[in-house]
C-alpha cells in the first residue's frame, strides 16, 4: 500500500481513464473503469475500477467514493462511504469514513472513521470481544 510514490501520484489518464484538469469542475457522477486523476474538482459520486488520484489542486466533495486505490494530495470530503485503499499525503485535507485500508503521511489532515480489515496478532485472537478478521 505504501508503494505509491509522489511521482506515481502524478500519473496521467493512460488508456481508458480520465484526467480532470485544474480548470475543470464536474457536478454529478463519475463512473467506469480506468484511472481517474483529478487536478480540478468533482462534486458528487465517484465509482471507478482503477486508481483515483487527487492532486494538490484537486478536490473531490460529495457522496460515496469507490476506487481500487485512492491517493489524496488535495482535498477529499465525502459524506458517504469511501471504499478503497486510501493514502493521504502530506498537505492534503481529508474528511470521510473509509472502508478498506488507510495510510496517513505525517502532516496529513484527516478526520473521519476508519474501518480497516486486518489480521489480529495471535496473542489478541480469541480474546473475546474483537474477533473481526479480514482479507488483508
Amino acid at each position: 500500500m505504501a508503494s505509491h510514490s509522489r511521482t506515481s501520484a502524478r500519473g496521467n489518464s493512460g488508456g481508458g481513464g480520465a484526467r480532470i484538469g485544474s480548470g475543470a469542475k464536474i457536478r454529478g457522477r463519475v463512473s467506469g473503469s480506468g484511472d481517474l486523476t483529478v487536478d480540478g474538482s468533482i462534486e458528487g459520486e465517484v465509482s471507478v475500477r482503477g486508481n483515483l488520484v487527487v492532486n494538490e489542486s484537486g478536490s473531490v466533495k460529495g457522496d460515496a467514493v469507490d476506487a481500487d486505490s485512492i491517493t489524496v494530495a488535495g482535498t477529499l470530503e465525502a459524506d458517504g462511504q469511501v471504499t478503497g485503499q486510501l493514502r493521504v499525503l502530506v498537505g492534503s485535507r481529508v474528511r470521510c469514513n473509509v472502508k478498506g485500508g488507510i495510510a496517513l503521511d505525517e502532516g496529513a489532515e484527516f478526520s473521519g472513521r476508519i474501518d480497516a480489515d486486518f489480521d489480529l496478532p495471535p496473542e489478541l485472537e480469541g480474546g473475546g470481544h474483537s474477533g473481526r478478521r479480514g482479507r488483508n
Binding site: 481508458g16 480520465a18 484526467r19 484538469g21 475543470a24 469542475k25 463512473s31 473503469s33
Partner: peptide, 17 residues
Amino acid sequence: ASTVIGAGITIDGEITT
C-alpha cells in the same frame, strides 16, 4: 489536453471548464 474523459469513463452530470 487539460481534461480527458477516457474511453472507460462515464460522467452523468455537468462538466464546466
